[in-house]
């Protein structure tokens, strides 16, 4: 499997999100979301918003929704572990949510610290009522991203686009 170039897939994902009306990209930095955030910083109609903790992004996206805008929340898989209680807002308030989760602690991981949360991403999201759309193969990206966008802003669901390490490549040490 040829691994997709970050600059290429990030551009395709960014364009798709902009087309869907996303203007705010809240994020905690991760190697996996770097190119996407650079595009959001550079975009004329988009804004990247640096967070101290991922859970802020859940509330920020809800605030944007109340004021008629669309925000995505970009985080590493470890950041999902900072979010569960804040996700009460999403399932209780029926707020749309699109989290873009770049995985660590799965396929090819070498850092033992990443495995516990890597394993827990799916169960945590499921427990809090967030639908996962996982991307393993490069050809899956657009369809999964569209499904997540539609589930969030047409279906009113909390969703996560989960980009696996098979898709992203494992971090070399």
């Amino acid at each position: 499997m040829a691994r997709p170039e970050p600059a290429d897939w990030s551009r395709r994902l960014f364009d798709l999100l902009v087309e869907a009306g996303v203007t705010l990209f809240a994020y905690v930095p991760d190697a996996g979301n770097r190119a996407l955030i650079d595009l959001a910083e550079a975009g004329n109609d988009t804004r990247a918003v640096l967070l101290a903790s991922e859970q802020e992004g859940i509330a920020l996206a809800a605030g944007a929704d109340l004021a008629g805008a669309r925000a995505v929340v970009c985080m590493q898989s470890s950041g999902v572990g900072n979010c569960p209680n804040m996700l009460s807002l999403v399932s209780g308030g029926r707020f749309p949510l699109l989290a873009i989760v770049t995985m660590r602690g799965d396929y090819g991981e070498m850092n033992p610290w990443q495995y516990p949360m890597g394993r827990a991403v799916g169960p945590v999201l499921e427990a809090m009522g967030v639908l996962s759309f996982r991307v393993d193969e490069p050809g899956d990206l657009e369809a999964a991203a569209r499904a997540a966008v539609d589930a969030a802003w047409r279906g009113g669901q909390g969703t996560a686009l989960v980009l696996s390490q098979r898709f992203l490549g494992a971090k070399p040490f």
């Binding site: 918003v49 859970q55 920020l60 605030g63 944007a64 109340l66 008629g68 805008a69």
Partner: peptide, 10 residues
Amino acid sequence: PMGLGMALAA
């Protein structure tokens, strides 16, 4: 953070 999202959106 909700206020931040609202303030940036409006």
